[in-house]
Each structure stands twice: as C-alpha cells, then as structure tokens.
Design a protein around this nucleic acid. Structure first.
Length: 566
RNA sequence: GACCUGGUAGCUCAGUUGGUAGAGCACCUCCCUUUUAAGGAGGUGGUCCUGGGUUCGAGCCCCAGCCAGGUCACCA
C-alpha cells in the first residue's frame, strides 16, 4: 500500500505510543458522565464540576505549556484547555510533551476528564486533568475552519468525496448530520401519527416474483434454489392491499423501492416510499389525513409550518388547495380538454408545443399536458385530483364521471410528493384494467404493469372500500431540509464504483532499466538513457518511476548526472 | 443516453504563449501558560485522473477512456 507522508508520520506515532505502553485501541468501556451539548446548554449546572467526555479531537492549538483543542462528540463541539502541570501533576511531563503535543493528531478519538469552566474570552471549556487515547486515527481529516463571522474556510466540498466517504463528510461538516437527524425526526413523526391512530406498521416482500403496483423498470435477480427470477420491488401496493383483504383496517410500510432507471438530483435507484392503506375510507378522507400529517411533520421537524424550499416559502398549514387536473390544464393552457377524443387531444398537444406520437393514449397526453404546462406552477401544497382512467389502472372509477378516477397527487414546490386513490376493489374491473396494461405492454410500453393473478384472486375474496397513499419520503425530507439533491438526504447515494488504485508493480521499461543498472552502477544518466533505447517521454516516465519507488537514485555531481542503484 | 463543466499536495484552489510544479490551511522542527481562522521563525510534502499522440520539451495542445457535478431526456 502506498502511504502519503502524513500517513507515515501517524503510523510512526502509533508505534511510539505502543512503546510508551499506551494501547492506541483499548477494549475497555469508557464511561462518560455528560455530553457536550448538555454542558453548553446548562453551563451553570456544570460550572466547576468534573465531567468525563469522549469524542474526536478536531483541532489543536499548542502554546508552550498550555494548549487548546476542540473535542467533538455526537452532540456537539467543545473546547478543551490543557495545562501541562495540571495534566501532569508529577515531574513526568510525558503525557503533555510527548503524547498530547507530538503523538496525538487531529481526528484521534480521546476520552477527557476535567473541570468545566469559562475562559477569559468567555468560551465554555473543560480543564483537562486526565487524557485517555481511545482510538488512533491514521488518515488526516480535511481541515475545515470557521472564522469569527461564521465563514467556512477550506470546506470539504467535493461532492464525489463527500458522497463516497460520507463518514468524513459527517465528521467535518456538522450540517450534514443535522439533515439526517431531521430525516429520522420526520419518519418518527409519521410513525407517531399513524401509531396513535392504531395503524399497523408491517413488512412485505422486497423480492417479488411479479413486480407490481407501479409503472417502472425493475431490477431483476435470480433465486438459485428455486431457479426462478425474482424482482426487487418497484412498489409494495399490491401486498398491502392483500393485507386489507386479510382483515387489517389500516396498514403502512416504509418501503425501500428499486427502479432501474436514470439517476439525477431527484432520483436514486433505491428510494423510500411510505405507503398507507385504510379500509372504509376514500380519497377525500385521505386528503384531510394528508394535510394533518404534513402539518405535524413540518412542526415536528422544523417547529413551523412555513418551510423555506429553495427560493420559495411553502406553507404546510392545512387545508391545502384542491384542483381537478382538467381545471388545471384549462387554467394553464386555455384548453378545455374534458371529453375530448384522442385526435382532438393530439391537436391540443401540438398547439401547445408538446411532442406526441401514435403510442400515446388520452391518459398519457393529459399527463403530458399537466406535467409540461401545469405541474411546476404549484408551489404551495396542492391536491391535483380526478386523473383520467387510463393513467390509473389501480384506482376506483370516479363516483360522478366514469372517464375519471378518484385519485389525487399532492404537488409541493412544483414536484409530486404523494399519490393517493380510492382503491379499485372491483375484481372484474381490475382484471380488465390489467388487460389494458397488457395491451400497452404489447404496444411496446416497457413500463406497463404485469398481471398479478394472485392479487386478483385476493380481490375476488372481497376487499373493503379502501383509500391508499404513497408519500415519497426522500422528497419529503428534501423539502423539509431544503436540500436540492436527493444525494443530500441519503447517507450513501448510489455511485459508480471508484476505479481501484493500481497495485504497485514495475512495468517492462522499468524492469529493463533496472537490469542495466544492476551491472552498471553508478552510470552516467545519458549513457543509461542511450542503453535503454527509450524515447524521451518513456525514459522520463521510467526513471521517475524508479526513483519514486526508491530503487534508483540520480546524483548531480561535478562530472555530470549519475544514476545509481539504491 | 446526449451535451456542458471539472479532476494539480491531506483539504480548498492558482498555474501566463508549451520551458525546473505554486499559495493558504494541515503536517514536521523550534519559541510561546486562558487562545480561538491563535501568533512568530524555519522546513517537508506531487501518479498534475488514466492511456496514447504532437513536440527538443506537455499540468497546459490533440485523440481515446475513467470518475464527478450540472443541464436535458426518462422517471417518483
């Protein structure tokens, strides 16, 4: 392994610590008596008291016989004050002079025992009495500094490194941790809301023989023992509905779903959707529930219903606006497309500049019209309702218009956040809708749904009228944390594998030159170059390679440049 | 998948017409007992993303590739 000079120094320090009888990776439990944030929030309570803390040393300012360091634990950061003669009460000053000043490094994990006090300039600090090394860090951390005005200097900001090495990102960029803590607050808030109503959290299969419940390309896998293909779920909808058939009144699941499609700032191949199904309800009830839920989530995560998302201030205060999709299209394009046939609709699309082809049906075109001309305008939470039947194969027909369905999508900041229906529970209608999908499949739509015979069988036993909703959790977290990329709300966003560092091995040219050197050392550089028969560029690379690996050495003497074997 | 931009020290970044690879922070040595982007003096550190090509000479020019970000397409 090729080590950088900084890494070599740290490994040497590690060795010296061992020689001093200090185990750099002790096994024993280290009991702390407080957390940093606790102390900072309640200084009076802790002032003058002795505490034991543990965390990572994030910086060090050595000033002769006294020093300051910064300790970061899971809760926050606090300054450590180290006075040589308080840390080392006897004549032996090794702990300060060698261990603290020389052998510890930024990034080391340490335990500290000392008294809480405030320095002359008013910073709450711990006056170190005992120092314990808990884990030695062998790689240098990026150094991120903050000045008096709060400006960050040399921020660790390269997105590739931040995502590939999220652990480093979390250590040095405090705001990153906040985002993920908020993510958990949000899911906890949703669970609280549902659990308090008696809804049951369940788990359903991720490996599915038929990928159903949504229109998307699945990841395919294979089960060896059964010798059958299995798909990573694109949705869990059909399984949750089976549970409603089975007699549960309300079930929900935080579902990791997988879709084999493009990646961008709002799409990751694996993502999380919360799906909820409640028996004896309809989509109108579901709108009300959604308003209440999101208002609570905003309060629990941000302590306000007014959330800043990019340049927009978005209010999650219930109730939200409701707009039928055909009204939205009328408002934003000027065309009333209600009741139009395929040809008429195609004309409208062409007039407003939407490309259409023969494979597109009424539903698809309405979806395009909305997506292109309307969607982005709904910044405040808005329920877009009553989608055309063709786009919604799992949705119950609208109670007053058979061309439409009882469906809504919730738009926030111009993006879809949730999708809900009065669920289709007529098994015969459902079978027909699946068969429509099959026709689309044959037409070449590779995202149309497969027929899930077992799901139909379940419906034939009878499913109560039910309303269901799916909420995109990653997107919700993006909104609540004002993140513009899905990568910022996933600990480990999908990345292409990084290329492996090439193993150190001499190439043919280097081997050849080394062979010449073995019998002629030292040798004039120009002579060696001539003997090697290499071009200028190859020669340059080869000799640099050899000297770098410390196999050869170039000496500049009065007689000229000589190369010798090391 | 297409296009645009980028990849140089541990981190953040300069690098002129192609002519010995730079800065700040970090690191090392020394000074400094309440500092805080601590300070002062000196020093170390490089696969300039990879592979070809042009050239006397390439971090820089040309070709191919890898990785990332952005925009678009597709999608939630």
């Amino acid at each position: 392994m090729q080590l950088s000079p900084l890494e070599i120094i740290r490994r040497e320090s590690l060795q010296k610590l061992r020689e001093l009888g200090i185990n750099p990776y002790p096994a024993k439990e280290f009991k702390t008596t407080a957390s940093i944030t606790e102390i900072l929030n309640d200084f009076k309570q802790f002032e003058g008291k002795e505490v034991i803390l543990a965390g990572r040393m994030m910086s060090r300012r050595i000033m002769g016989k006294a020093s300051f360091a910064e300790l970061k634990d899971a809760s926050g950061r606090m300054q450590i004050y180290i006075n040589r003669d308080e840390l080392c009460q006897t004549d032996d000053k090794t702990m300060y002079n060698s261990v603290f000043k020389k052998l510890l490094d930024m990034g080391d994990i340490i335990g500290v025992k000392g008294e809480i006090f405030k320095t002359k300039v008013g910073e709450i600090s711990i006056n170190l009495k005992k120092l314990t090394l808990l884990s030695k860090s062998l790689r240098p951390l990026p150094v991120v500094k903050k000045d008096a005005e709060g400006n960050v200097h040399d921020a660790f900001s390269d997105p590739e490194q931040r995502y590939r090495q999220r652990y480093v990102d979390l250590i040095v960029n405090d705001h990153v941790k906040e985002t993920f803590i908020k993510r958990t607050k949000i899911t906890n808030s949703i669970r609280e809301f549902f659990n308090s109503r008696g809804y049951l959290e369940v788990e359903t299969p991720i490996l599915q023989p038929i990928p159903g419940g949504a229109a998307a390309k699945p990841f395919i896998s294979h089960h060896n023992a059964l010798n059958i293909p299995l798909y990573l779920r694109i949705a869990n909808e059909l399984y949750l509905k089976r549970l409603i058939v089975g007699g549960f009144d309300a079930v929900y699941e935080f579902s990791k779903d997988f879709r084999n499609e493009g990646m961008d700032r709002t799409h990751n191949p694996e993502f999380t959707v919360m799906e909820l199904y409640v028996a004896y309800k309809d989509y109108i009830w579901m709108m009300k529930m959604t308003e209440e839920l999101l208002e609570k989530v905003a309060m629990d995560s941000n302590n306000t219903t007014e959330v800043q998302i990019g340049e927009n201030k978005v209010s999650f205060k219930a109730p939200f606006q409701k707009v039928p999709i055909l009204d939205a299209i009328k408002t934003h394009t000027g065309f009333d497309v209600a009741g139009m046939n395929e040809t008429e609709l195609r004309n409208v699309c062409q007039k407003v500049g939407i490309e259409v082809d023969e494979t597109m049906g009424i539903g698809k075109m309405i979806d395009e019209l909305f997506g292109e001309k309307c969607e982005h305008t709904y910044i405040q939470p808005t329920f877009i309702t009553d989608y055309p039947k063709e786009m919604s194969p799992l949705t119950k027909e609208h109670r007053s218009n058979p061309a439409l369905t009882e469906r809504f999508e919730l738009m926030v900041n111009g993006k879809e956040l949730a999708n809900a229906y009065s669920e289709l529970n007529d098994p015969i209608d459902q079978r027909e809708r699946f068969e429509e999908q099959l026709k689309l499949l044959e037409k070449g739509d590779d995202e149309a749904m497969f027929i899930d015979q077992d799901f139909l069988r379940a419906l034939e036993y009878g499913m109560p009228p039910t309303s269901g909703i799916g909420i995109g959790i990653d997107r919700l977290v993006m909104f609540m944390t004002n993140s513009s990329s899905i990568q910022d709300v996933l600990f480990f966003p999908q990345m292409k594998p990084e290329p492996k560092a090439p193993a150190f091995e001499l190439n043919d040219e280097e081997k050849a030159v080394l062979k010449i050197l073995e019998t002629n050392s030292p040798i004039l550089l120009s002579e060696l170059k001539a003997k090697s028969g290499l071009s200028n560029k190859k020669w340059d690379k080869t000799i640099k390679g050899l000297t770098k690996h410390n196999l050869a050495k170039v000496n500049n003497t009065e007689e000229g440049l000589f190369v010798e074997l090391v």
